[in-house]
């Protein structure tokens, strides 16, 4: 019987010898440093007018094609809504992205586990409190990296 938090339940995903693994080196699409939401600043040049991805920490590991599918051409911030502290700082920082960095759009990529919804909640709280609005899209990713849902969020 399954029990406990779906976000920390033990599971294994058997793979049959690395099928569909790309050959050669796959170039990184990361264009900045740092990336952790506590460490980045909305004043950083790479955020100004940018399309930004706010990714839950686990997403780029679950999703084999994260760099090309979501990161390419965008600035990045990562966070974990379950484990990270001082999340009110996150709300202010995301609001800073909307108002000060004047970002063009925000894509929030989260895992399917319930606790991950918190990251979208932080982004929407920031959008609601922001005097400047931008399109926000949420992407929910399964534990094995499939996109389960993409939808536009409204504040």
């Amino acid at each position: 019987m399954m029990s406990g938090c779906p976000g920390s339940r033990t599971m294994t995903f058997p793979k049959d010898g690395g099928t569909e693994a790309p050959s050669g080196v796959v170039p990184s699409q990361l264009r900045q440093w740092p990336i952790q939401l506590h460490l980045v600043s909305p004043q950083a040049p790479y955020f100004q007018g940018a399309d930004v991805v706010l990714a839950a920490d686990c997403v780029p590991f679950a999703m084999g094609n994260f760099h090309n599918a979501y990161l390419k051409g965008k600035a990045l911030a990562i966070a974990c809504p379950k484990l990270d502290g001082d999340q009110e700082v996150y709300v202010e920082k995301i609001r800073g992205l909307f108002e000060d960095a004047k970002i063009n759009s925000l894509t929030v990529t989260i895992m399917q586990v319930p606790c991950c919804r918190g990251l979208l909640g932080l982004a929407m709280q920031a959008l609601k409190g922001s005097s400047r609005k931008v399109p926000v899209k949420s992407v929910i990713v399964s534990l094995q990296g499939e996109v389960l849902q993409e939808e536009w969020a409204s504040a």
């Binding site: 399309d51 759009s105 931008v134 399109p135």
Partner: peptide
């Protein structure tokens, strides 16, 4: 693209 959606949104506003 997300870039185009963001730009359209700003121009419409």
């Amino acid at each position: 693209s997300m870039r185009q959606v963001g730009e359209l949104f700003a121009r419409f506003r």
